[in-house]
Design a protein around this nucleic acid. Structure first.
Lengths: 189, 189
DNA sequence: TGTGGTTGAAACGGTACCGTTCCAACCATA
DNA sequence: TATGGTTGGAACGGTACCGTTTCAACCACA
């Protein structure tokens, strides 16, 4: 009977090592040591690093809390950005998420994980777009795919790529710019 | 007298290994083997991985060709996006660039490299913004920092984070949305 | 030609880490 | 209590890789 507490400790250690070393250099021996375990405990649960990562990611609440309807596109975008900023500030997330993206360019299994992470977020983002269309704020002909690019991208760029903080004023500007971008889009097909 | 051709071969090998393995897992022994060299050739030139990376990045033409003035914000943004798409399609760039960003979250020396890479691009991007202000298309009070977030971010998100291609039509929409975002910004200070 | 210095592939000695094995401890069952 | 099975830390045998050393080849200069 595997110990549930040990499995949890292993997941915690795995995330910490992932954040510190990156996936490529992550050592299962160090994960085991960090969790106060031996490697057999890891190999009895997972066949290797990729499966460990895959299932570690699964333990996270990938399903974001549903966004409540704020009543307008502006307000919805602001709320989405605020939450995204909060997520991207987390010390583990802000190191692991870009590492997933980098690794996804090298490893197809990691690409699959990256897509799964993105999918959950995209579903919630889509609701914002669809609600806005239903309210008549955005056109029915909106290119959803490009709209979904605009929704998170400027915040991601600022916090993950440039690695600068985002003040409340800047967050406001980002929401304003993003909303304007969404309004400017319409399908060209 | 160190052989110039060997130094070049080492840089080429380094970039290839970086793209394939990521910086964290990059092995100087493999770089040497790939270049048909021994490790002493590496250690006589560079003290280790970080210095090698630092100087390898320096060998690239970081100074982008200056953007010629296309006459309007729309056209400038379109041209900027087109070039960014081209750059991000390069098989080495699309693997190394996100890896730099991921590593920058772990290693301060890599953060310095990442900032240097970004700086060259930001200078050219700034010129687009300043020209547009000079033409009267954008307000003098524009928040430059947020504007510079919007300029590359949707393309980066699409190509590097989501890892999907960008058609010509979509590129057009991205430029349209980005331009609208820039127009919507004005400083709140 | 002899001398001194530089260069770089191959070898070296040592460590980290891999996946596997060992075996004591524990649990369930007859 | 005895038996069989599971679990997991420690040890194992092997490989990759590190930074350093060796030494043949080469160059420049007197």
């Amino acid at each position: 009977m595997q110990q549930v507490e040990l499995t949890k400790a292993l997941y915690r250690a795995f995330f910490h090592e992932w954040a510190e070393q990156g996936f490529a250099a992550l050592s299962l021996e160090r994960v085991a040591a960090r969790a106060g375990a031996g490697k057999a405990a890891i190999y009895r649960r997972w066949s290797g690093k990729l499966q460990f990562a895959d299932e570690a990611i699964n333990t996270l609440a990938l399903k974001m809390a549903a966004f409540e309807d704020k009543g307008s596109l502006d307000a919805d975008v602001r709320a989405f950005h605020l939450r995204l900023r909060t997520v991207l500030r987390h010390p583990l997330v802000r190191r692991i998420l870009p590492d997933i993206h980098a690794e996804a360019a090298r490893l197809s299994e990691m690409k699959a994980i990256s897509e799964r992470v993105a999918q959950a977020r995209r579903e919630e983002a889509s609701k914002i777009i669809e609600r806005s269309i239903a309210r008549g704020e955005l056109p029915q002909t909106l290119d959803r795919s490009v709209a979904l690019d605009f929704l998170p991208s400027s915040i991601y760029w600022r916090m993950v790529v440039i690695k600068n903080t985002l003040s409340a004023d800047e967050l406001e500007l980002h929401a304003k710019g993003t909303t304007a971008a969404l309004r400017a889009l319409s399908s060209s097909h």
